[in-house]
Design a protein around this nucleic acid. Structure first.
Lengths: 233, 233
DNA sequence: ATGAAAGTTGAACCGACTTTCAACTTGGTT
DNA sequence: AACCAAGTTGAAAGTCGGTTCAACTTTCAT
């Protein structure tokens, strides 16, 4: 069951008896808690942690990192101030946990569009549309990842580097299937991946977070640009 | 004479006797001080303000807004703590002033490439290369504009909205000259402008701020993408 | 049923930072 | 030479919020 529609902390996924777990999804609450010996060991604890995470997402999303306060977060979560420190070592640690989680959320939300019908570029079009819809519905996520540049640089960098790598890999696949024109330079795929990613992020900011344009229309225009370029004839 | 190679506070530009001034550049120190009655009225004051701005650029650039402290800024500038409040109402006001200035710096640095030889897309290529070189040399500027999203949202938004508008206008011009394929939708130019801007920003982050790739090579790859697209044949 | 482990509570501590201000210095003008 | 507006100084006030902790409650395995 997802928290506030965003923090996905499916309790059962990590229950004592569960055998298999998703390969690399870190959706369980236990994994979200501070890396120290801070993971909840009880159903009650897990519920509390989940409340704190939900509250934190709202608080950081609305007020930003430095304006946000632990008092306000615990108050939103309806737990005592001290309870916070049962699960996290510091305000920063909480933020980092949230960044990791948000990064996974974005990936998981967009991933389904990347398999299925159409050539590589068509799938990128659908992925962008999905991303824009996700951004419009979860503006908090956007703000948190952006602010990670200053609060959790490691997390920020890692989010974008892995995202870019995935895009580059998909481009490589599409190219090997002959769906793309050939790129000579070894730099090319990486440069293009970062260019596409940057475009997507800014489109999300402008047309999903700040304004509300039709995701499919924006994605279509962008895809035409990516596929055919702007050059005459 | 530019401060630290970035904050351009050419004193003489605003001297009492100067007649003409650049149309819309806000390069003079007087204009940078807090809007209140805080502008320096003396050569000595102007020098002090300049020292504070230089120090602030370094401090914010290295430590980020919340880590940065007025004590540290005034100490870098070698002035007393209280002197700061002769020129700015608050830490935020200082940051805002810096954001406005950095925004102008970026524009002024890239602008020259946007006139001159070549078609519209070729000029955009040169502009991107210039931007990448500027970003590599002034990483502080990057960080400050990025952090403005949280510290000075107005300034942030205004920076990117005006930048996007300029790009869109240039696209319109190029299209009217027949250099671009025609776009039907009224949304198209704005969407494309934001996509290009986002691409440029992320390329700057990755290949100028984080890494040091050859600006011309990165710009060339990107330009090929923008001109011809990725689609096969 | 019971005891130990896990979780909860919130008052108080603590350090850090912004901002103020009244005394002092500087330098240009008359 | 003396005046005064502009600028400078730094100690201290004031605020604010993160973090700690010892007492208390709940849960759950035995």
């Amino acid at each position: 069951m997802a928290i506030t529609g965003t923090v996905d902390t499916t309790g059962k996924a990590n229950a004592k008896h569960s055998g298999a777990r998703a390969p690399r999804a870190t959706n369980d609450t236990a994994a979200i808690g501070a890396s120290g010996g801070k993971a909840p060991r009880t159903a009650r604890g897990e519920k509390t942690l989940r409340k704190i995470l939900t509250a934190a997402l709202e608080e950081f999303g609305e007020r930003g990192f430095s304006e946000a306060s632990i008092v306000s977060i615990t108050s939103r979560a309806e737990v005592a101030l001290g309870t916070f420190y049962t699960y996290f070592d510091s305000k920063e640690a909480l933020f980092q946990a949230l960044v990791r989680d948000m990064s996974a959320q974005v990936r998981d939300h967009v991933a389904p569009e990347l398999s299925g019908e159409g050539d590589g570029l068509e799938r990128e079009r659908r992925a962008l549309a999905a991303f824009l819809r996700f951004a419009a519905e979860h503006k908090h996520v956007y703000r948190i990842i952006d602010e990670a540049e200053f609060v959790d640089p490691e997390g920020f960098r890692s989010h974008y580097e892995t995202t870019a790598s995935r895009i580059a890999a998909r481009l490589g696949d599409a190219a090997s299937r002959g769906e793309l024109r050939q790129d000579e330079s070894p730099l090319a795929h990486e440069v293009i991946a970062w260019a596409l990613m940057g475009a997507n992020v800014f489109l999300g900011l402008r047309f999903a977070v700040w304004g509300h344009s039709d995701a499919d229309e924006v994605a279509a225009i962008t895809n035409r640009l990516v596929r055919d370029g702007l050059g005459a004839r």
